[in-house]
Amino acid sequence: MADLSAPALSVPAAPVLSPRRPAVSAIAWAVGPALLLFVVFFILPFGVMALLSVLTGNPAIQSGVTFTAQHYERFFEDSLYFEALVATLRIGAITTVASLVIGYPLAHLMARTHSRIGHALLLMAVIAPMLTGIVVRTFAWMTLLQDRGVINTTLLSWGLISSPLKLMYNEFGTIVALVHIYVPFMVLTLTGVIGRIDERLEQAARSLGANRTRTFLEVTLPLSLPGILAGSLLVFALSISAYVTPFLMGGTDVLTLPMLIYQQVGASFNLGFAGALGVVLLAVSLIVIIAYNNVLGRFAGGEKMA
């Protein structure tokens, strides 16, 4: 996110040679398709969803549709919806932190590996899970974690436990599966940033007497903060909008806003309330992301990071 409040550089005014319109750069034209994509596949659908959330029906197919706040009022009428929002953010935050803890060392290793084969093998290991669909990976976790799954059956047969551990149909199972699915996003984002950190800076810190831990904490980690921010935002955004994995792994213990949104669209056919839930999720997520950005920016020396 650019800091628009930053003072512009003072540049002497150039003499105006002609009243020609400023030429549009080639890069600006190249951005066109992405911008179009963003408008068509995000702004427009989001606008429709936001509009439906303040209407009594769908004006395209119904008559007598009026503006209303009923869908937002309903969100605040029962605490279940607020609890679902909190659970969504909690699952997103824990998944992000766990992905970072698992992904950072892997990304560091990938960035610092000088062997081409080693780098390729690590890259394949990270990317391979992404080549199978989310549903397949979630079902794989189900076969591992369910009561009669591989883990419980093995532990029972070894006599280590007398009844199956509750490994799924709860937040634990949901987060385990989400972390597995989203760690590659964290690793790939961090690898690029860590790879661009000049190794000589770390070597200089070591030569000045810093041990490995101090070098990491005072040189590598601060310089990799942009990657941590980008990876965290990516994983957080994906986790809070996940539907399939919480639905299959969470059972009745887990209720997130995407599950409620699908329920409203697919089973209750209430597009207005589904829209209101979507708007609330987006608004709260944006607030969380802006706060996170600011906090991380302070650690990086008072600058906003993105």
Binding site: N58, A60, A267, L271
Partner: peptide, 13 residues
Amino acid sequence: AFPFLPKLQASPR
């Protein structure tokens, strides 16, 4: 491909 009703709901009458 489920769900059918939301698709019908969104299509022109």
